[in-house]
Design a protein around this nucleic acid. Sequence first.
DNA 1: TAGTGGTCTAGACCACTAC
DNA 2: TAGTGGTCTAGACCACTAT
Lengths: 245, 245
Amino acid sequence: MRTVKYLNISYKIYKHYISKKDGTTKRLPGEKELSEQYSVSRETIRKALNELIEQGKIYSIQGSGYYIKQESLSLKNSLNSLSSITEMIRNANLAEDDMDTNIYVDKPSDEASELLQIEKNDDVYILNRIRTAKLEPVVYSINVLPYKLVGNEFAQYYFKGSLSKFLKDFYDYEITEAITEIQAVTSLDEVPAIFSGNNYPLLKFIQTHYTIEGKPILLSYDYMRNDVIRFYVKRNKRIKGGNMK
Amino acid sequence: MRTVKYLNISYKIYKHYISKKDGTTKRLPGEKELSEQYSVSRETIRKALNELIEQGKIYSIQGSGYYIKQESLSLKNSLNSLSSITEMIRNANLAEDDMDTNIYVDKPSDEASELLQIEKNDDVYILNRIRTAKLEPVVYSINVLPYKLVGNEFAQYYFKGSLSKFLKDFYDYEITEAITEIQAVTSLDEVPAIFSGNNYPLLKFIQTHYTIEGKPILLSYDYMRNDVIRFYVKRNKRIKGGNMK
DNA sequence: TAGTGGTCTAGACCACTAC
DNA sequence: TAGTGGTCTAGACCACTAT
């Protein structure tokens, strides 16, 4: 891949002005000065700086300049960007030791047929998984995958490992976004059997995963022990045109 | 405020090509054609289209074109954009009938002093609030506000209503982002007294609110009845340069 | 190979901040 | 009023998709 100038310069600006947080210099040089310094046009500098704004590292004030943001505390398991449960377990400094996967075909629940936009008599694959760390169950997942998307060969070729990676490599279905509902689980009958009897606080994620076209291809339910894995969301103020829905 | 051309055109393109979701036309005209149609330069069209991409309404494939995304299900209480608890209650079709607010000065907890980046012997205002709907408690909030940021006059002038709005109007502190930790509350001793005795599933948000400079100015704890208010997060795949932290 | 979107340039004018 | 960032233009070349 050819190097993209503005991303390259964005990184250089970050390294030179932002990474060494000495706490003194707060303002960046102006666009004009930077464009001379890096021998590129002003628009390219603007794209580079915009990249840093999107990453939350700097902000700008019209008529004044670009300023470095104060360092905030770490944002480890950010729900804003898509990541697998496996990654989240690693971020919690837990080693995932085993994974028990169980596949079968069934009819979708009402909720599943609505979220996956399929008919109620369409078949779905159901994948149950228990993830453990230090021999204790940490996450219990149920994945619901429309049969018609993956066909009969799915059960033959998929064994274990990242489901989203398999869907991409084998079927060229790439998941680019997800909408997640977050729930607290307390009523005892909803708690999966593996967790029942214990008094863990449990979070439940109901996640619908979409391709770039906006087509739903996977629904997942994840029950997670909230005492060992923590979740964060970064929330931003909406700017510009608002919601024109 | 002067009208910004690319936002204006972005809206026009949305109205003309996207809002009337007849399900047939999936591809937008090319950049060149659109720039002629709206009599603007190609770069302006690109900014307009980019706006629609950021809103999740379209996507582009290099060498091919711009395409309309499939409609996904509603994303009501999105945690991605900042909104007040009051708004969330309204989105849940609940009318907030009363609010009991209680203010006093105290020392911060260890967690509060860390998140607010203040000393442990600095004073903080504590605001407790109970929000009810249909005479039942729905949300219990604790707000922690550094005394040195707002001074003695805070208790005199602030009575009730949106705290973030008051901070902006009275002190010119504008909250532009927040980092929220999401927890499930189950252990009985952590449940606020108003909720105890009942068997509601409770979600707890620990939110640190920042100004645009990245300075923390408010910490809030919100305990919410998850059976009446539901929360969603939109998660996107990270593109481009990744994390250069 | 033709057509599309992605990057980059040089220059202009406008809106806002700081003084 | 000078200097800054925000918008907009017209044109060039490159990378990718479709065929």
